[in-house]
């Protein structure tokens, strides 16, 4: 499953910090995702995974530190950067009054595709994510899982070079989880897309990730080997050790 990703970093967090009042939601987080790599971000609820992703997507401004996408700083990034980035954070993209196809076309056009390209790419991704049956239905009638598929379709339609996905398997049935796994693996290892994905499902993460970063209380506390045994046990050991230490040390050098 592990491929040989390039060494070109397409997603970087350099000392990113964000506080909300006294709560330091993300604390000096360093992270790097290479082109063609699937980098998983795991941690307990409230560990700061979503906040870190929002900082990387300029949805929040950091208190300090910087985020970088495709070699450009996130702060002040324009269409040239964002048109190559796809994301699914919190609520999957989809206007309830628009059909599935209209939503995907809209997402494509907002990412810079012209109308004919948006239409063509939308038909392809709707098929790839098994949404054909609902293509002309208003998205308000979709189940939770299919709304998640719609959100994924909107994140992928413009063939981005970077994907940042927060809990992408939320609401997906087992078939959907398999389809998403296949899709992410093909995008990363086949098309060289750099993917940062957060998940609570360690077994799923083990199947697709090239690298796993663990966050706890806003900090990066370690890296796990996805090929090692008993990933769940190692995750909890790392989190428990971080909790016990009290003062948060940076992890040792990540493995190449």
């Amino acid at each position: 499953m592990s491929a040989s990703p390039s060494t070109v970093q397409v997603i970087e967090a350099r000392g990113l910090t964000r506080s909300f009042g006294d709560d330091r939601a993300v604390d000096r987080a360093d992270l790097a995702v290479a082109a063609g790599q699937i980098h998983a971000l795991v941690g307990l609820n409230g560990a700061g995974k979503t906040t870190l992703m929002k900082l990387l997507l300029d949805m929040l401004r950091p208190s300090s530190g910087s985020g970088w996408l495709l070699g450009d700083p996130v702060d002040g990034a324009g269409a040239a950067v964002w048109s190559r980035v796809g994301h699914l954070i919190e609520t999957p993209f989809g206007y309830p009054e628009l059909t599935v196809t209209e939503n995907v076309v809209l997402a494509a056009r907002l990412q810079g595709l012209d109308r004919p390209s948006a239409r063509r790419e939308s038909l392809l991704i709707v098929g790839e994510l098994a949404l054909d049956r609902w293509a002309d239905r208003r998205s308000r009638v979709l189940s939770l899982g299919n709304r998640q598929r719609l959100g994924l379709a909107c994140a992928l339609v413009h063939e981005p070079q970077v994907l940042i996905l927060d809990e992408p398997t939320n609401g997906l049935d087992p078939k959907g989880v398999l389809e998403l796994r296949r899709l992410l693996l093909s995008r990363a290892h086949g098309a060289g897309v750099g993917i940062l994905v957060s998940s609570h499902h360690l077994d799923e993460v083990a199947r697709i990730a090239d690298r796993i970063t663990v966050m706890h209380r806003g900090r990066v506390v370690g890296v796990l080997d996805p090929d090692g045994v008993d990933l769940e046990r190692r995750f909890f050991d790392m989190v428990y050790a971080a909790e016990q230490e009290g003062s948060w040390t940076q992890p040792s050098q990540p493995r190449p």
Binding site: L57, D58, M59, A79, W82, S83, V85, H87, I89, E90, T91, F93, G94, Y95, A107, L110, Q111, G112, C154
Partner: peptide, 10 residues
Amino acid sequence: TVVGLFAIAV
């Protein structure tokens, strides 16, 4: 839906 209006080309 505001989340989808961030990190886009427009």
